[in-house]
């Protein structure tokens, strides 16, 4: 099964549950009491997920390791390499 099919099947299962709740196929006092909430629940899910995504991505951007040490170490090694290679007779 491709990833696309996986998404389609999970989303349609969720849609079926949601539709049976708002369409009145399942009867329960709790459902009737919260019908407005159920109606907009997909939007709430999407908004919450969007918030989660933005938070995670921004957190990862700000905590992205900057590797200052690695850059400094590389600069030193480049200088060392150039000197050593010149000694070995390399013409840059």
């Amino acid at each position: 099964m491709t990833k696309l099919l996986e998404w389609v099947s999970v989303l349609s299962a969720m849609f079926a549950v949601w539709y049976s709740l708002i369409g009145g196929y399942v009867k329960h006092p709790l459902i009737e009491k919260n019908i407005n909430l159920i109606l907009i629940s997909p939007l709430i899910f999407i908004a919450l997920f969007g918030l989660y995504a933005v938070t995670v991505v921004l957190y990862r951007v700000f905590t992205f390791n900057n590797c200052e040490e690695a850059a400094k170490e590389l600069q030193n090694e480049i200088a060392e390499a150039r000197k050593d290679l010149l000694d070995k007779g390399l013409k840059f």
Binding site: V57, V61, F64, N65, N66, C67, E68, A70, A71
Partner: peptide, 13 residues
């Protein structure tokens, strides 16, 4: 332990 050097905010984002 991994990371990048020389990337600005936009590139990281």
């Amino acid at each position: 332990g991994g990371g990048v050097y020389g990337w600005d905010f936009k590139r990281k984002l």
